[in-house]
């Protein structure tokens, strides 16, 4: 089962290396990782997706907690979380196929970022499922390159 950990860390040099090092030496696998500063410039947030099938998530969070620069860890409840990823996809197109690719992009509310003679670059935002569905549809046209961010997630506000 995939878990999304939202980790608040002190915004200091070497913090990412400590976290990455911890994951590798304890044998935990990172599926995705996104880092950025928060509303407080001294604090950064890392959103880490891990597969807890092999290692109990509790060990992962406890070990993370031992790092001095880690302030807070939240194991986000998928029911109460909104998560998004962003993907940039460069697809080969020519005059004949361009229209069809643009149609697919529109259905996914993706944006065309760049049009070249032989390719089209699309930006899509959404859940992992949506991004993968779009990629599936684009693949037959020839995907030249995909660049994906890690997942970022936020807890829903109270109802």
């Amino acid at each position: 089962m995939k878990h999304t950990l939202s980790v608040l860390v002190e915004n200091k040099p070497g913090v990412l290396a400590r976290i990455a090092g911890l994951f590798s030496r304890r044998g935990f696998n990172i599926d995705s990782l996104a880092v950025g500063i928060t509303e407080d410039p001294d604090v950064s947030r890392m959103t880490i997706t891990v597969d807890a099938a092999e290692h109990p998530i509790e060990q992962v969070t406890k070990q993370l907690h031992k790092l001095i620069n880690v302030i807070k860890i939240t194991d986000l409840d998928p029911e109460r979380t909104v998560a998004r990823e962003l993907s940039l996809v460069k697809v080969s197109t020519d005059a004949k196929t361009r229209g069809e690719v643009m149609q697919i992009a529109e259905i996914f509310r993706a944006r065309i970022l760049d049009v070249g003679k032989k390719s089209l670059t699309i930006e899509v935002t959404g859940t992992t499922g949506k991004i993968e569905a779009l990629e599936q549809l684009l693949r037959p046209h020839g995907v030249v390159e995909i660049v994906r961010t890690g997942r970022v997630a936020i807890e829903r506000g109270g109802k």
Binding site: G14, A17, R18, G21, R25, I68
Partner: peptide
């Protein structure tokens, strides 16, 4: 040395 010892310290500092 902070990199080399990263897995074997409780914490480390490189003073800047």
């Amino acid at each position: 040395i902070t990199g080399i010892t990263e897995p074997i310290v409780k914490h480390s500092y490189l003073i800047k």
